[in-house]
Design a protein around this nucleic acid. Structure first.
Length: 719
DNA sequence: GCCCACTTTATTTTT
DNA sequence: TAAAGTGGGC
């Protein structure tokens, strides 16, 4: 086969494996997606399998699209009939097809994370539950993490009253969703798993169909997704899993790397193939990545290599402040650009989104084009959600969430008190808000007539016209048109977005086989859309390390390499946490093809306060000989030992005033490096009190920030 | 029913 | 710092 000839031996072995389950350990830049798509093409083109017998699962819509695109090039036939999609998309497809068996209305709606949280808050209010004691976010995590383990409320073991109460809220939440005909993300998976588990006929049907199941990014699967795959595979189908345990960075949201070992056991995998040849980076970059990741405890074991030369050393820059760090990045990027590298081939990575602001500021000052990834996406915008809520209510009157969102938006004089009364009635009679509303008079009844009118007059219309009609008659357009003064700009943007929604619908109708309203609403929930494409202009790429997974750039800056920031202090409590941070650093390093810059700052503005950090321990896990320090490389013990004033003048004096009252008699200074017998080395970041009451706040390298009684602390100077 | 001022709080995120 | 959420006042 022509397309096999360009593969290396391991890749070819993976692609042409016989029909049985296999695990492909594919390192960063080793051609993972290529192997996956080529395998599908090979299976079909050799006539072993027909397209209907293939199920390919990805985590993101982007990955699914990419795969389809590549396949359309490799296969002479249209790629129709292939089931390629995300876990959620595929589960949705199954649930729509068998909605009766799944005990769902045909037009069930999908709740995104924000909708789900709002639903939980509303439920807790009606149940009179103290949201201080049971924070809705915590409940949301509780519900989702249990569902992702495959557990329903009644299956949870709760031994204390607190857990029992959470369990009750979970149960009530599920009941409410069922009543309203809505399904959250984890429910899509759980519900379809339960459907296949209890309905043997359906299970047999799908098992007979999907002879080959291929999974991308297998290290990111959670327990439920694994169970789902097991159920579909049955005893005879081949599960072809591709993943990299070293790039598992989503344990915090339920990903279970252990699935990789379990797969080899449960599926009697004889073929574990390692793809270790990297086609992306120069040698020094890979050496650094390999050295770093070896500090992790449990690994399946893998070492990347390249036939490329060593390339340039990794450059390290120590800045005094975060602003200086940003300036260095901008200056260097400008320099690279002038040497002929596209800005879009340069990425600035950071651990958390807040860090982008200083960098953006420096970029604006320098007039350099940039693009920030992440943030609010199209279908998540308020005005879009409002418009969608009208559409949802038209389609499914039981959707209380949708009703509450729009009953008084645009404002039509239906206040909180009225809404409360509606809710009380609905609860007392166990009926939907819509039903109560139809029995009400006054302003509520005009709202009901409005929605009914919209439902009637859109019945015969095509999707884009339905949306146009709703935008016009709901008063949404008029609402934003009437905005004046300071909100004008914002209102104009919102109106543009609403118009864009009509365009999105038009595009959707052209592209998809099913152009129904339900299908469009599903699309909106499952594919929230990139924020705004705008890939036309060449721009520097700014994103979190998480967002960079799967991408590659000529040059990469990894910024904010400070202890507490990267690795993040919230993950320092456990070994597993630090290991995941290290994998994150591994992902960051392996994004770079040619040039890698590692930067950190002695002081950083965080949450409106100046913080003094120590350089990241990850820097010290990289072999010295691979690094070239742009600023003088100072010994580990202190960031402040090289002569110049460590404290940026514009920052310090005022900021710390509450904490430094009466600290004049302290033997220590802010920013000074100190050593403690138990906690080790750290930096003084605050002081308060006088004499024997004096307390001192120290940011320790290993244990984080602590307040100590100065009298007993027995600190020694570390510089 | 609405608006303004105050407090609180701050990873990572796709579906 | 800056966004989001809460509560008081009109």
């Amino acid at each position: 086969m022509d397309f096999l000839s360009s593969l290396n031996p391991e890749q070819r072995a993976a692609v042409t494996l016989p029909e049985r389950s296999a695990l492909i350990l594919a390192g960063a830049g080793s051609g993972k997606t290529r192997v996956l798509t080529t395998r599908i093409a090979w299976l079909i083109r050799t006539g072993q399998t027909s397209p209907q017998n293939i199920l390919a699962v990805t985590f993101t819509n982007k990955a699914a699209k990419e795969m389809l695109l590549r396949l359309s090039v490799m296969l002479p036939i249209p790629v129709r009939g292939l089931w390629i999609g995300t876990f959620h998309g595929l589960c949705n497809r199954i649930l729509r097809t068998h909605h009766r068996e799944a005990m769902l209305p045909q037009t069930f709606q999908i709740l995104d994370g924000v909708d789900q949280l709002a639903t939980i808050k509303r439920l807790m209010k009606t149940l009179n539950i103290d949201d201080e004691k049971y924070p809705p976010r915590e409940i949301q995590v509780f519900i989702n993490s249990n569902k992702e383990k495959g557990l329903r409320a009644h299956e949870i073991e709760a031994f204390d009253p607190y857990s029992r109460r959470k369990m009750e809220i979970f149960a009530a939440y599920d009941e409410q969703c069922q009543r309203e005909g809505v399904v959250d993300f984890s429910e899509l998976l759980l519900r379809s798993h339960e459907l296949l588990a209890r309905n043997q006929q359906l299970r047999d049907h799908y098992q007979a169909r999907f002879r080959h199941i291929l999974v991308d990014e297998f290290q990111d699967t959670n327990r439920l997704q694994y169970q789902w795959l097991k159920l579909l595979s049955g005893q005879h189908n081949a599960l072809f899993a591709v993943g990299d345990d070293d790039q598992s960075i989503y344990a915090f949201r339920g990903a279970h790397v252990g699935n990789m070992q379990e797969l080899t056991r449960d599926f009697h995998v004889q073929d574990v193939i390692k793809l270790e040849q990297n086609y992306r980076s120069h040698g020094n970059i890979l050496d650094a990545a390999n050295a770093l990741i070896q500090n992790n405890a449990s690994r399946l074991g893998k070492n990347l290599w390249t036939s490329e030369n060593k390339g340039e050393p990794i450059r390290v820059f120590e800045a005094t402040t975060d602003a200086e760090e940003a300036r260095f990045i901008v200056d260097t990027a400008t320099q690279l650009h002038s040497e002929g590298i596209w800005l879009s081939e340069i990425a600035v990575l950071y651990r958390s989104n807040t860090q982008s602001r200083v960098i953006e500021h420096a970029l604006v000052s320098a007039g350099l084009a940039y693009r920030v990834y992440g943030g609010l996406r199209f279908f998540e915008r308020q005005e879009i959600k409002h418009a969608l809520a009208y559409l949802r209510l038209i389609q499914n009157p039981a959707d209380d969430h949708a009703l509450l969102r729009i009953i008084n938006f645009p404002a039509r004089g239906i206040g909180a008190r009225t809404i409360e009364q509606l809710q009380e009635k609905a609860r007392a009679q166990n009926i939907s808000l819509w039903q109560v509303a139809t029995q009400s008079g006054g302003k509520v009844s005009s709202f009901v007539s409005l929605v009914e009118m919209m439902r009637d007059s859109t019945r015969e219309l095509a999707l884009p016209e339905i949306i146009e009609h709703v935008l016009l008659h709901s008063g949404l357009i008029a609402h934003f048109q009437n905005q004046t003064g300071t909100q004008l700009r914002e209102a104009q943007e919102r109106m543009e977005n609403l118009n864009e929604l009509v365009n999105a619908a038009t595009l959707f109708v052209h592209e998809s086989e099913d152009d129904s309203l339900t299908s469009f609403l599903t699309h909106a929930a499952l594919e929230s859309g990139q924020s705004q494409a705008d890939e036309s202009t060449d721009a520097l790429q700014l994103m979190t390390v998480h967002a960079s997974k799967g991408l590659e750039f000529h040059s990469v800056f990894v910024s904010g390499l400070e202890e507490g920031l990267f690795p993040h202090h919230n993950s320092r409590m456990t070994h597993a946490g630090v290991d995941e941070e290290r994998r994150l650093m591994y992902v960051a390093i392996t994004r770079a093809q040619r040039k890698l810059y590692l930067t950190f700052a002695q002081s950083r503005m965080l949450h409106g306060q100046v913080n003094y950090g120590l350089r990241s321990s990850f820097l010290h896990e990289l072999p010295d000989e691979l690094l070239h320090w742009i600023t003088p490389r100072m010994p580990m013990r202190s960031n402040f030992s090289h002569g110049f004033t460590p404290i940026p003048p514009e920052n310090l004096a005022v900021k710390r005033k509450e904490r430094t009252i009466g600290a004049q008699d302290s033997p220590w200074q802010l920013g000074q490096a100190v050593s403690h017998a138990k906690f080790g080395e750290g930096i003084v970041v605050g002081m308060e009190g006088r004499g024997s009451d004096s307390r001192i706040q120290v940011n320790f390298r290993t244990t984080g920030t602590k307040w100590l009684a100065l009298e007993y602390a027995n600190l020694t100077s570390a510089s």
